[in-house]
C-alpha cells in the first residue's frame, strides 16, 4: 500500500467531465435541470392549455352571428343551468355513481380472491385476467360489446336458449333505463361502462388487500370476531382506501367519456358528448369549455375527499 497517492484527486479536464463535476457540486442546480423539462411541458404547455380553455368559458357566443364575444361574462355558466343542460350533467353524474358502485361490488370478490387465496399459477392467471382487458384496446372492447349486445348477437341468443327472454324484456320495459334493445338503452351503456372501467377498480383494491397482514385477521379471529365481523370491522375498512382510489378512475373516466354512450346507448347526451358537439358541430367553444369545468370541479372535490381518506397511498 503506497501512502503517496493524493488524498484528493485533481479535477478532471474535458468539457463534459467539467460540466458533470459542476452539476454534482451544485445539487440544487442538478435537481432544477432534472425537473425543468417536465415543468416546461406539463406546467406550461398542458396547464397553459387548460387555463386558456378555462378563460374561454368566461366568454360567450353571440346568438345571432354565432361568433365568440371576447368579453368577461358568466352568461355561459348560467346556460349550464338550463334544464336541458342540467339534465345532461345529472344524467352523467348518476351514471358515474352507478358505474362506480357496481364496479366496486364486482371488483371486490375478484380482488379479494386474488389477494388472499390465489397463488402461483392462479395468481398469474388473475393478474393477466385483469391486465389483459385493462390494456386491450378501448375501442376493441366497445366493439366486442356491440357484438355481444346486438339483436342477433350472443346475449339474446343465450337468453333465448335458456328461455329467459321474458326477463330481458322485463328489464328493457323498465322506465328510463330500458329501451328497444340493450344496445340502445341506458342499461347497455351502464354494462359497457362497468366492463371497461372494472380493471381500474380491481387493481387498487387488490393492492390495498395485499397490504393487509394476515396476522391481523388471525388477531381479529383470536379476539372472537366471526368471519363476517372481521370482514366488516377489519378487512373492509382497510380495503376502503383502495376502493376510493379505484373509484377515482371509474368516476372520472365515466364523467369524461363520450364514445361509449355514442355507440351503445340512447340518443340523450352525456357531458363528454355535449362538449364534443358544442366545440365541433355547434362551434360554441365557450359552452364546451364551461361544460368541461363541470367534471374538473366534481373531480377536484372528489380528489380532495379521497386525499383525506388516504386513497393516494393505495394508487
Amino acid at each position: 500500500m503506497s501512502a503517496i497517492s493524493p488524498a484528493i484527486f485533481a479535477p478532471r479536464s474535458g468539457p463534459l467531465s467539467r460540466a458533470v463535476d459542476w452539476v454534482i457540486r451544485h445539487p440544487r442546480m442538478f435537481v432544477f435541470l432534472m425537473v425543468l423539462p417536465i415543468t416546461l411541458w406539463l406546467g406550461i404547455v398542458y396547464i397553459g392549455a387548460l387555463i386558456a380553455l378555462l378563460i374561454q368559458s368566461f366568454f360567450s357566443i353571440d346568438e345571432y352571428s354565432g361568433l365568440i364575444v371576447h368579453e368577461f361574462t358568466l352568461k355561459t355558466y348560467a346556460e349550464l343551468f338550463r334544464s336541458y343542460n342540467l339534465d345532461i350533467i345529472i344524467r352523467t353524474v348518476s351514471m358515474a355513481a352507478a358505474v362506480t358502485l357496481a364496479s366496486a361490488v364486482i371488483a371486490f370478490p375478484i380482488a379479494y380472491f386474488a389477494a388472499r387465496y390465489a397463488r402461483g399459477k392462479w395468481k398469474a392467471l388473475f393478474y393477466i385476467g385483469v391486465m389483459l382487458p385493462l390494456w386491450s384496446s378501448y375501442l376493441v372492447k366497445v366493439y366486442a360489446w356491440k357484438l355481444v349486445l346486438a339483436k342477433e348477437g350472443i346475449l339474446n341468443w343465450l337468453f333465448a336458449k335458456l328461455h329467459l327472454t321474458w326477463a330481458l324484456e322485463a328489464a328493457l320495459a323498465l322506465p328510463v333505463v330500458g329501451g328497444n334493445s340493450l344496445s340502445v338503452s341506458y342499461l347497455g351503456t351502464f354494462i359497457v361502462f362497468v366492463y371497461i372501467w372494472l380493471p381500474y377498480m380491481i387493481i387498487p383494491v387488490q393492492a390495498a388487500l395485499e397490504r393487509v397482514p394476515a396476522p391481523l385477521l388471525e388477531a381479529a379471529a383470536d379476539l372472537g370476531a366471526t368471519p363476517g365481523q372481521s370482514f366488516r370491522m377489519v378487512l373492509f375498512p382497510l380495503a376502503m382506501p383502495g376502493i376510493v382510489a379505484g373509484s377515482i378512475f371509474t368516476f372520472s373516466l365515466t364523467l369524461g367519456d363520450y364514445i361509449i354512450p355514442q355507440i351503445i346507448g340512447s340518443s340523450r347526451l352525456f357531458i363528454g358528448q355535449a362538449v364534443y358537439t358544442q366545440q365541433g358541430t355547434a362551434g360554441n367553444i365557450p359552452l364546451a369549455a364551461a361544460f368541461t369545468v363541470v367534471p374538473i370541479v366534481i373531480m377536484g372535490l372528489y380528489l380532495w375527499g379521497a386525499r383525506k381518506m388516504g386513497a393516494f397511498d393505495a394508487l
Binding site: Y46, L50, A52, L253, D257, G272, A288, T292, P295, I296
Partner: peptide, 12 residues
Amino acid sequence: LPGIITGISLRS
C-alpha cells in the same frame, strides 16, 4: 382529468 379535457384544451 378526463381525456376529453386534455383533448379539447390542446385543440383550443
